[in-house]
Amino acid sequence: MSAFIIDEVKKTFSNGEVEEEILKGVNLSLKEGEITALIGPSGSGKSTILTIAAGLQKASTGEIMFDGKDMTKMSPEEVRHIRATDFGFVFQSSHLVPFLTVEEQLQLMLDVSETKMSKKEQTNAIEEMLKLVEMEHRKESYPSSLSGGERQRVAIARAIIHRPKILFADEPTASLDTKRSKGVMELLQELTRTLKLTTLMVTHDEEMLPYVDRVITMRDGYIVE
């Protein structure tokens, strides 16, 4: 059963006078426990479809079905609530909060998602999650003192600490060297399997493809294979 279906999504941007159709009808369904990778040339619309699916911008037409409901018909507050509880995000740069320590970043995400966990359960979940991404030894560090790879691992931990159903990642390895990139991919693969996540990621890097379950190629606003 598909958890997430993108159906005939189109997106038009108007730059002043000119209307440009960037997505020309994208169809895609994501499967639970799988990593789906979006690849394709620059400007083909990968980031655009990812952010629309993630509820960060609106589609011009089309439907996005999540848990049997059409997200394009929801109020901004409903979409926000889904982002807070059911989605997780990893971006190209880690976008951590500069004045929070590693464990506080995760605590913040738990607070935002209004988790029903008790205080003790939260502490344990943070502890476990940091072990999983191998960052427990840096839990009291601030982002500025971490390396790029470490930051990205914390960003991944933050993206899934609240147990979301879908994980969205836009070029999560782009700022890392090959060795670190592979580390991050291994982590995403493991987390997707063990936590039964549905993961959609955008990547440029062919070397990351062995770690994913499905590869979708985009070109000029269409999915080509």
């Binding site: 960060l56 926000r80 609530h81 889904i82 982002r83 807070a84 509880t85 989605f87 995000f89 976008h95 909060v97 500069p98 995400m109 935002v112 998602s113 933050r158």
Partner: peptide, 15 residues
């Protein structure tokens, strides 16, 4: 940028 990220992960504007 920070506010954007906080909003992206679902923080309420009122927060």
């Amino acid at each position: 940028g920070l506010y954007g990220i906080l909003k992206a992960i679902g923080m309420k504007t009122i927060s």
